[in-house]
Amino acid sequence: MEDLLKKHFLDYFAVRDDVDVTAERLGKEHAPHLQCEKGCDLCCMDFSILPIEFYAILEELKSNKFDKTKIQSNAPNNKDSCIFLKDHACTIYKSRPLICRTHGLPLLFANDDGEWELSACELNFTQFNFEKFSVSNTYPQDKFNSRLFLLNRKFISEFGKGKDFGEFDLLPLKELVEKL
């Protein structure tokens, strides 16, 4: 059972590695327009994530002996801020969720009507012609979200029995602190 759980986490980490490669490529390509740097934390919000990601991050934080006391004593003033934000920096940066790994980049996704939409941080790309965005220079959010969803579905089918979540449920990131 433990080996199967590790396999699920390794599959998640493989997706995360692919996201990082794509994000790094796009970050280099769009470097002149990205304003993101340490101290910019407007995107650091109280997100909820799929169970596979939640439990993989939890396991990673436990393995790295993450010290949760610095978090509990430093809860953000804004209830919408991420609990892992301290002094305008992410305390779980190496383990942060996929959504956090793509902030600042131009995101391409299908909206509820099935039409393609482009999203970009309002602080970035202020001097950029949006007509120049293409499939090759935007982050394919749906591609990675689909991979993550399929991993989550398998994870839930094998480990979700008796848990309080299903394949469409999201778990608040801040609940990681309670489980550490």
Rank of each mutant, 00 (worst) to 15 (best):
M1N: 10
L5P: 00
K6S: 02
K7Y: 00
H8L: 00
F9Q: 02
F9P: 03
F9M: 02
F13M: 15
V15C: 05
D17W: 08
V21Q: 14
A23T: 09
A23L: 06
A23D: 08
R25D: 09
L26Q: 09
L26T: 11
K28T: 07
E29C: 07
E29T: 11
A31M: 09
A31S: 14
Q35H: 11
E37W: 04
C40P: 07
L42Q: 13
L42M: 13
C44E: 11
F47P: 00
E53H: 01
A56F: 07
E59H: 10
E60H: 12
E60P: 06
L61W: 07
L61G: 10
K62V: 05
K62W: 01
N64A: 09
N64P: 00
N64I: 02
T69E: 03
K70T: 04
K70G: 06
K70V: 09
I71L: 09
S73H: 06
A75D: 10
P76M: 08
P76F: 05
N77P: 13
D80E: 14
D80Y: 12
L85A: 10
K86C: 02
K86M: 05
H88D: 10
C90E: 06
C90A: 05
I92Q: 08
Y93I: 10
R96K: 13
P97N: 02
P97E: 01
C100H: 03
T102H: 00
T102Y: 00
H103V: 15
L105K: 06
P106C: 12
A110N: 11
N111P: 02
D112F: 08
W116I: 04
E117Q: 09
L118S: 06
A120E: 14
C121H: 04
L123N: 14
N124M: 14
F125T: 14
T126I: 15
T126G: 15
T126M: 15
Q127G: 15
F128N: 08
K132V: 04
F133M: 07
S134N: 08
S134Y: 05
S136T: 13
S136D: 13
Q141H: 04
D142L: 13
K143D: 05
F144C: 04
N145W: 08
N145T: 12
S146P: 00
S146H: 07
R147C: 01
L148M: 11
L150R: 05
L151V: 00
R153C: 08
K154V: 08
I156Y: 09
E158N: 11
E158M: 11
G160E: 07
G162T: 08
G162W: 03
E167L: 11
F168R: 03
F168E: 03
L171P: 06
P172M: 04
L173D: 02
K174R: 08
K174G: 01
L176W: 06
V177G: 03
E178H: 15
E178W: 12
K179N: 12
